[in-house]
Simulated assay, not measured.
Amino acid sequence: MESTQVRTAAPTPTLSTKPHYAILDGLRGVAALTVVAFHLCESHATSHLDQVINHGYLAVDFFFLLSGFVIGYAYDDRWSRLTLKEFFRIRLIRLQPMVVLGMIIGALCFYFQASPVWPGIAAVPVWKTLLVMLVGFTLLPLPVSMDIRGWHEMHPLNGPGWSLFYEYVANLLYALGVRKFSNTALGILVALAAAALIHLAVTSPAGDVIGGWSLDPEQLRVGFSRVMYPFFAGLLLSRVAPLARLKSAFLLCSLLLLLVLAFPRVGGPEHLWLNGLYDSLSIVVLFPLIVWLGASGQIAGEKSSRLCKFLGDISYPIYMTHFPLIYIYTGWVGTHKPTLAQAVPVALLTFGAAVVLAYVSLKFYDEPVRRWLKKRLA
């Protein structure tokens, strides 16, 4: 979810002159597009076991690891001249505009989502929808009593807001203390977080790490477990991993990432813990490997560079604006009950609309607003 930087030379002390990791930008876009496809297929699933693109939910954990890596690379060497206020201002300018737009789009789409999937949705008063939207602007989690959809989401107008809430929590922890950790201390934190994540995945009643979007003790545990290891493992990786020079890294890393996210369910209903082991292996081992390979890679040519830039540019907007369209698609599926094969034309239309909406949001809202905020708050 975080903008990465393209590595073409040795790092220099200032953020503006640091080279970019273009391949990581591209991978973030690949993961974001996979999330859209995963959510479309999810509308047709009867359980976690028969979900197509079965492990697409792990893209969130990949985003967290990418964010930790980029935060470490961008800010670790700047704290001698960077204040907490400046750090938080930069992060808010980068993330908050799309949070606001995502909630507005969710509110505008809310009454077009009427379906048996959400009984009583039409009876929700407008004032309550607006209140949920305004609280959503802040990313403060809403209690279950304010859930106007029935999915127990802390942000029922735009479900993915839950992961941005934890992104902010990780940023706070980094800025307020973890940035000062030695590599040894950070390694201990990462090891403990990995143990907590593995325990969650293996002992989960569903045999996976899905969850984190509700404001209750069980779901809060899931959310914190999912962010603590990958974010701070990414931070540690940015500090200690020596980079190699790899060719065709974008293609290789994209294929590896898609393989991890699309891999079929492991273990079946008889051995749910095996899928928990797969989730653990993916997050703890494979994702750091993919990020390291991507950071070590070289862009092959101008076309690859433009592709990575495009994917990186739309990755955050598509993540923050696609879910209201998914709500509408899910409502349509709940009303008409098509098979996945019958729904392909509508699913493709929704997928394309999500990409177009993300690009329009980027060019006509996110980039102009961030430029204005940078001038206003400089």
Rank of each mutant, 00 (worst) to 15 (best):
L289D: 10
S225E: 05
A170C: 08
Y57H: 15
R245V: 09
F69V: 09
D366F: 00
A195P: 01
S361P: 05
P205F: 06
A353V: 02
L215K: 07
I53F: 14
I210V: 13
K85C: 03
R370K: 15
L200H: 04
R94H: 11
E367C: 00
A300F: 01
T34R: 02
D216S: 09
N171K: 01
M133R: 04
L173I: 12
L257V: 03
G234K: 07
G177M: 11
A353N: 00
F364D: 00
S296Y: 11
L235Y: 06
N275K: 11
I71L: 14
A295V: 05
I188A: 11
S296P: 11
L33V: 01
F224D: 06
P19M: 01
L220P: 00
V36A: 04
Q5W: 08
L33W: 00
N275M: 07
A201T: 01
A74V: 06
C41M: 14
L139E: 03
P97H: 12
F231Q: 04
S305C: 06
F250W: 11
G212W: 07
L24R: 02
N171T: 05
T129M: 15
A9I: 00
L281A: 15
Y319E: 11
F110D: 07
L58S: 09
T4E: 12
A196T: 09
